[in-house]
């Protein structure tokens, strides 16, 4: 073949490059995608340098002076930043503790429903909030939780003898709880899909055998359904741990207000305000980088753990 002999004579780099020419049509299709990732994902990674500079918008990256770790030191001296770390971790852990088991429980309950129509209706209704943005959800929550005449307060006062109405979204004592409960409310139905599918794939003969052995329903859930769900639960839990620094930017930015920064301001909302409200690029970039680096390490290690657990077939 003439083409192979001519390839042999060429420099190895050129030989590699000619492969792209050989598949020129595929290369042409891939090119815009790679260009996109380079421009919008990798060039910004270069922008991380801002966090080591006394960045001035007029001077740009090339003209601004270098200040080493000053921005990071400044961040850690800032009370607001420390507070945002605390809030992020508290809200995340609360979401993990209550929000993580909720869809599992929902799936287990749903699996016990034998009337298909009822099951379908419950599923369809519970999926609805998933399709709405946090902007819409915030609008609905503001109305429901309003301290004057919001349905929840009216209900609490009329049926549960509450004396004074509660300002769920504007009171530091209630904001985190409201955020966690509303997050569960939005995601419980949708989050149950994966677990329900796993339950459906359990071999029915297991249940038949259990019934023959006289296992009641609770025992069947305890000894068949839950153990069969364990691999999925473990992996989901590990993956959730990896994103513990994401306490829900979309949600918090739409629900919080200055009155509840004390308990509700998370790292992401703080990065947004510092950067695009106060226009302090260097501080915002530094905090963002700090968060992304830790987040990266968390995701990589938890992913590795998940892979190890599922790959080794321990379960």
């Amino acid at each position: 073949m003439t083409s192979t002999t001519s390839l042999k004579k060429k420099h190895p780099v050129i030989a590699e490059l000619t492969k792209y020419v050989k598949y020129w049509d595929l290369s042409l299709m891939l090119l815009p995608v790679i260009a996109y990732f380079v421009i919008f994902k990798y060039v910004p990674m270069g922008g991380i340098l801002i966090s080591f500079q006394d960045y001035k918008i007029g001077l740009g990256l090339a003209g601004s002076s270098w200040v080493g770790l000053d921005n990071f030191i400044g961040a850690f001296k800032s009370f607001t930043f420390i507070r945002s770390i605390r809030n992020t971790l508290i809200i995340s852990v609360m979401k993990l503790a209550f929000g993580f088991p909720a869809p599992i429980l929902f799936a287990l309950l749903l699996n016990e429903v034998r009337h298909t129509t009822y099951k379908k209706v419950v599923q369809t209704i519970s999926y609805l909030p998933h399709f709405l943005s946090w902007v819409i959800m915030a609008g609905i929550l503001h109305q429901l939780l309003s301290p004057n005449n919001g349905a929840v307060n009216v209900l609490l006062m009329r049926w549960f003898g509450l004396k004074k109405s509660i300002y769920f979204l504007g009171d530091n004592a209630y904001f985190r709880g409201t955020a966690v409960v509303s997050d569960i409310w939005k995601g419980i139905g949708w989050g149950s899909i994966l677990y329900l599918a796993t339950i459906t794939s359990i071999d029915p003969t297991l249940y038949e055998a259990a019934i023959c052995d006289g296992a009641n329903r609770r025992q069947r859930v305890r000894y068949i359904t839950l153990p069969s769900l364990m691999p999925t639960i473990t992996i989901m839990l590990i993956l959730n741990l990896g994103s513990i620094l994401d306490a829900g930017f979309d949600q918090i930015l739409n629900l919080y207000s200055a009155a509840v920064y004390e308990t509700g301001d998370i790292i992401d909302t703080y990065v947004y305000r510092v950067g695009l409200v106060d226009w302090n690029y260097k501080l915002s970039t530094a905090i963002g980088l700090f968060k992304n680096l830790i987040g990266f390490m968390l995701v990589v290690s938890t992913n590795a753990a998940a892979k190890k657990l599922s790959g080794n077939g321990i379960w």
Binding site: P44, G46, G275, L276, S284, N292
Partner: peptide, 9 residues
């Protein structure tokens, strides 16, 4: 890269 670097691009 984070919020600000992306915004600047």
């Amino acid at each position: 890269g984070g919020l600000i670097p992306t915004y600047l691009v």
